[in-house]
C-alpha cells in the first residue's frame, strides 16, 4: 500500500507536503516511521481542514479504483459474467447457433432424473478419494527429502517435480502405452514375476484406478514442494527439545512435523479435492466413448463436455456445470468446517 501511494504521488505530481496528511489509511502508522522528505509538510499540517481531507479522500479513492480496475475487470469478465451467463443458459434450450428458448427448470428436472448424472458423480467421487490417498505419499516423500544431510536432494526434487511441468495430454498418451495390455511395459514387468496383467485402461474393474494413479503421479511434485517448504519452516529447537526428551524420528514426525505443517496439509487437500472433482483431461486422453470401461471412468466434467460440445445441448450442459459448482462449493465448505478439528495455526 505504501509503495502504491508513493507511486501515485510521483505519478500525479503531488508534492510530499500535502499528500500524506489526508491519506485515509496510512497516516497513523506512517507518523511513527517518518518518510524522509515528507516529514516537514506533515508536521506543519497537524490540524487538518475538513474540505482538504475530503478532496484528498476522493483523490485516493479515484486512484485506488484505477489500480483495482484491471483485476476487477478481469474477475467480472472472466469469472463472474461466465457464471451468471451459465446460470441463465441453464434455464434455456440453446441452439447450436445461438437462439435460445426459456424452459424454466426443465434441464434440471431432466438432469436429476438421468442415471448418467449419478454414475458420473460416483466416478468423480471415487477419483477424489483416490486422489486424497496421494497426500500421505507426498508427505512421506517430503519428510524423507528433508532429512538432514541427505545427498542429491535437488535431483530428487527436480525428478518429483518434472511431471508437474509436463503436459497432461502428453502424460496421458505415454501412460496409455505403459498400460497397454499386449505390449505395455507394466504387463511385461508383471510377467517377469509371473503375474498376468490385464488391459488396465479398458478393463472396467481397473480403468478408474489406473487413471487416478496417473493423476496422483502428476500432482505429487507440487504437493512435495509445498510440504518441503512447510517442513523447513518448522523451528529447529522443537526437534532439539523433542530429541532431548528421547523422541525418535518417527515420533518427531507425528508429534511435531505433522501438527506444525497441518495448515499446508489442509491447503493441499482442498486443492486436491477441487482438482479431482474437475478431472477431465486425463479421462479425455486415456479413455473415450469407444472404451468399454468408459461408463466406469466418465467423470461429471467429461459428461458436461460431451453434452455441451459434442451433442449440442448447451442448456443441459450449463445445468451440469452449475451442479458441479455447487458440489465443489459444498465439499470445500465442509472441509473448512472440519479443519477446526485437526489444523493447528501457530
Amino acid at each position: 500500500m505504501a509503495g502504491v501511494l508513493t507511486d501515485r504521488e510521483q505519478a500525479s505530481g503531488t508534492d510530499g507536503a500535502t499528500a500524506p496528511g489526508g491519506s485515509p489509511s496510512g497516516s497513523g502508522s506512517r507518523g511513527d516511521t517518518p518518510a524522509p522528505g515528507r516529514r516537514p509538510g506533515r508536521s506543519g499540517r497537524s490540524g487538518r481542514s475538513g474540505s482538504g481531507m475530503s478532496r484528498m479522500r476522493r483523490n485516493d479513492l479515484f486512484w485506488a479504483a484505477v489500480f483495482i480496475l484491471p483485476t476487477l475487470l478481469g474477475l467480472v469478465v472472466f469469472y463472474l459474467w461466465p457464471v451468471v451467463r451459465t446460470l441463465l443458459i441453464s434455464f434455456t434450450e440453446t441452439g447450436p447457433f445461438g437462439g435460445s428458448e426459456f424452459v424454466g427448470l426443465a434441464n434440471y428436472r431432466e438432469l436429476f432424473g438421468d442415471a448418467r448424472l449419478w454414475e458420473t458423480m460416483l466416478n468423480t467421487l471415487k477419483f477424489t478419494v483416490v486422489a486424497l490417498l496421494g497426500i500421505p505419499v507426498a508427505l512421506v516423500i517430503a519428510a524423507l527429502l528433508s532429512t538432514e544431510g541427505l545427498r542429491g536432494v535437488r535431483i530428487y526434487r527436480v525428478l518429483y517435480f518434472l511431471p508437474v511441468v509436463t503436459m497432461p495430454a502428453a502424460v496421458g498418451l505415454i501412460w496409455r502405452t505403459l498400460y497397454n495390455g499386449d505390449v505395455g511395459v507394466i504387463n511385461a514387468l508383471l510377467g517377469l514375476v509371473g503375474i498376468e496383467g490385464t488391459n488396465w485402461l479398458s478393463n472396467p474393474a481397473t480403468a478408474l484406478y489406473a487413471i487416478a494413479a496417473v493423476g496422483i503421479w502428476l500432482s505429487l511434485g507440487t504437493q512435495i514442494v509445498i510440504f518441503l517448504a512447510a517442513i523447513q519452516g518448522v523451528p529447529k529447537d522443537l526437534y532439539e527439545a523433542a530429541a532431548l526428551d528421547g523422541a525418535g524420528r518417527i515420533r518427531q514426525f507425528w508429534s511435531i512435523t505433522l501438527p506444525q505443517i497441518s495448515p499446508s496439509v489442509f491447503f493441499i487437500s482442498v486443492l486436491a479435492v477441487i482438482g479431482a472433482l474437475q478431472t477431465f483431461d486425463l479421462i479425455f486422453v486415456m479413455t473415450g466413448p469407444t472404451n468399454p470401461a468408459y461408463p466406469q471412468t466418465e467423470t461429471i466434467v467429461a459428461q458436461f463436455y460431451q453434452r455441451g460440445f459434442v451433442e449440442n445441448q448447451q442448456g443441459y450442459a450449463a445445468a451440469i456445470a452449475l451442479v458441479i459448482l455447487v458440489v465443489i462449493v459444498a465439499v470445500t465448505a465442509l472441509q473448512f468446517r472440519l479443519q477446526k478439528k485437526w489444523v493447528h495455526y501457530v
Binding site: 484491471p70 441452439g95 447457433f97
Partner: peptide
C-alpha cells in the same frame, strides 16, 4: 491478470458480439 485482461479483451468483445447476433 492485467496482462491476460489486456490480451483477451478484444477476443471477449468479439465473443459477446457473436452471442448477440440472431440467426
Amino acid at each position: 491478470t492485467l496482462a491476460a485482461t489486456a490480451a483477451l479483451t478484444p477476443l471477449l468483445v468479439l465473443g459477446l458480439a457473436a452471442c448477440g447476433q440472431s440467426t
